[in-house]
Write a protein that binds this DNA or RNA. Structure first.
Length: 207
DNA sequence: GGATAGATTTTCT
DNA sequence: GAAAATCTATCCG
């Protein structure tokens, strides 16, 4: 069934690492008041409950509470004081695991993405970007992706379903060439090959 | 092309 | 009070 919104049963059908691979090639859509943006998911990372890099590795806290919700819940958090990151919660209720979406190939609303990315974040002196971004830079990396898509913490702890503003479409291609590697920007769990990406796709954040 | 420093604030110790 | 699932500008070769 091409062109259908992923049902909750999809998110619940796989373990976290499998879901991270299955989400590749799917299209993330945000229907915001400003307009619709979307992009093909080309890069993900898995965070498991027995993995020291996972936010839910230690105590269950207020911030990570959505990670313990049902698969298909959104988990959005602020990192380094400036950037938001978007995750899809995975596994069963009560188990704190999620998939970080790291890069998109823009499809809809490219002009809106450019507009949202035209300001460089910064409290003291938010700067206007001087150089025009290339399309493959708009959603490169989790912080940039969230900004281009207009995903903020107001979308934290929502269910990715029909009727909501944020959801994911099924992918059409079944046989994707998928690569894996260690994850980016972490200091623990370095050796785990929990990063997945579409091979030879120029929208991936890093080789 | 790669390496490095600085921005910024929430969260947890 | 330190660390953090990041990004950008700047320096250097």
């Amino acid at each position: 069934m091409p062109d259908s919104i992923l049902p909750l049963s999809f998110y619940a059908a796989y373990d976290t690492r499998s879901l991270a691979e299955k989400l590749l090639g799917c299209e993330l859509v945000h229907e915001s008041p400003d307009g619709v943006t979307s992009g093909i998911i080309v890069e993900t990372e898995a965070y498991l409950s027995d993995d020291p890099a996972c936010h839910a590795y230690n105590r269950r806290t207020a911030r990570t509470e959505p990670m313990y919700g049902i698969a298909g819940t959104s988990y959005v958090y602020l990192i380094y004081g400036m950037y938001e990151c978007f995750n899809v919660v995975s596994n069963h209720e009560g188990i704190g695991e999620a998939v970080l979406i790291r890069a998109l190939q823009p499809v809809k609303g490219i002009e809106l993405m450019e507009l949202r990315r035209s300001l460089i974040p910064g409290k003291t002196a938010p700067k206007i970007r001087t150089k025009q971004l290339k399309v493959n830079e708009l959603c490169k990396g989790p912080g940039n992706l969230a900004r281009a898509m207009g995903i903020e913490r107001s979308l934290h702890n929502n269910i990715l379903l029909t009727g909501g503003p944020l959801y994911i479409h099924d992918r059409e291609v079944q046989d994707l060439e998928i690569g894996s590697s260690v994850r980016i920007g972490i200091n623990v769990g370095k050796e785990l090959l929990y990063r997945f990406y579409i091979k030879d796709n120029p929208f991936v954040s890093k080789l």
